[in-house]
Amino acid sequence: MLATIQRFFQQALTEPAGEGSSGPTLERATAALLCEVVRADYHTDEAELSSLRRMLKRHFGLGDGEVEELMELAREEIETSVDHYQFVSLIKQHYGYAQRCELVRMMWSLAYADGESHHLEEHRIRRLAELLHVSHSDFIRAKLQAQADAE
Rank of each mutant, 00 (worst) to 15 (best):
residue 36 E to C: 08
residue 51 S to L: 08
residue 85 Y to M: 06
residue 100 R to A: 10
residue 118 H to G: 01
residue 63 G to T: 11
residue 39 R to S: 11
residue 14 T to F: 15
residue 81 S to C: 08
residue 51 S to Q: 14
residue 39 R to L: 15
residue 62 L to G: 03
residue 110 L to M: 05
residue 4 T to D: 15
residue 16 P to I: 13
residue 11 Q to Y: 04
residue 13 L to H: 06
residue 72 E to A: 08
residue 137 S to T: 12
residue 61 G to L: 04
residue 34 L to T: 05
residue 144 L to C: 01
residue 48 E to F: 07
residue 19 E to M: 12
residue 96 G to F: 09
residue 109 S to W: 07
residue 78 I to V: 15
residue 132 L to F: 07
residue 106 M to K: 09
residue 99 Q to W: 03
residue 12 A to V: 11
residue 16 P to E: 15
residue 84 H to R: 01
residue 13 L to M: 12
residue 102 E to D: 13
residue 55 M to T: 12
residue 145 Q to S: 13
residue 33 L to I: 12
residue 133 H to W: 14
residue 7 R to K: 15
residue 134 V to A: 04
residue 29 A to W: 09
residue 93 Q to H: 10
residue 84 H to K: 00
residue 40 A to Q: 02
residue 85 Y to C: 03
residue 11 Q to G: 09
residue 38 V to M: 09
residue 48 E to S: 01
residue 95 Y to M: 06
residue 59 H to N: 06
residue 5 I to S: 04
residue 30 T to D: 07
residue 95 Y to V: 05
residue 128 L to S: 03
residue 25 T to Y: 06
residue 66 E to P: 07
residue 142 A to P: 00
residue 30 T to C: 08
residue 10 Q to K: 10
residue 133 H to L: 14
residue 139 F to R: 10
residue 87 F to R: 00
residue 113 A to N: 01
residue 130 E to G: 15
residue 102 E to W: 02
residue 12 A to F: 03
residue 140 I to R: 09
residue 7 R to E: 15
residue 24 P to D: 07
residue 73 L to Y: 10
residue 31 A to V: 03
residue 57 K to C: 05
residue 30 T to L: 09
residue 144 L to M: 10
residue 5 I to N: 02
residue 75 R to Y: 14
residue 101 C to E: 10
residue 71 M to E: 12
residue 112 Y to R: 07
residue 29 A to L: 07
residue 32 A to P: 00
residue 102 E to L: 11
residue 97 Y to D: 06
residue 140 I to H: 04
residue 98 A to N: 11
residue 25 T to G: 01
residue 80 T to I: 09
residue 39 R to C: 05
residue 77 E to H: 11
residue 66 E to Q: 15
residue 25 T to W: 08
residue 94 H to Q: 10
residue 73 L to R: 04
residue 51 S to H: 14
residue 41 D to P: 02
residue 138 D to E: 15
residue 95 Y to A: 06
residue 22 S to G: 07
residue 73 L to N: 00
residue 95 Y to P: 03
residue 33 L to R: 00
residue 78 I to W: 13
residue 79 E to F: 12
residue 60 F to W: 10
residue 41 D to G: 03
residue 8 F to G: 04
residue 35 C to P: 00
residue 47 A to C: 01
residue 78 I to D: 13
residue 113 A to L: 02
residue 119 H to A: 12
residue 145 Q to P: 02
residue 111 A to C: 08
residue 107 M to E: 05
residue 131 L to V: 01
residue 70 L to H: 06
residue 37 V to S: 04
residue 145 Q to L: 13
residue 141 R to L: 11
residue 88 V to Y: 06
residue 130 E to V: 08
residue 18 G to F: 10
residue 105 R to F: 03
residue 67 V to A: 08
residue 143 K to N: 04
residue 126 R to L: 11
residue 133 H to R: 10
residue 129 A to W: 05
residue 38 V to N: 04
residue 84 H to S: 09
residue 68 E to W: 11
residue 132 L to Q: 02
residue 69 E to D: 15
residue 65 G to V: 02
residue 52 L to S: 01
residue 54 R to E: 13
residue 91 I to G: 03
residue 25 T to M: 07
residue 37 V to A: 07
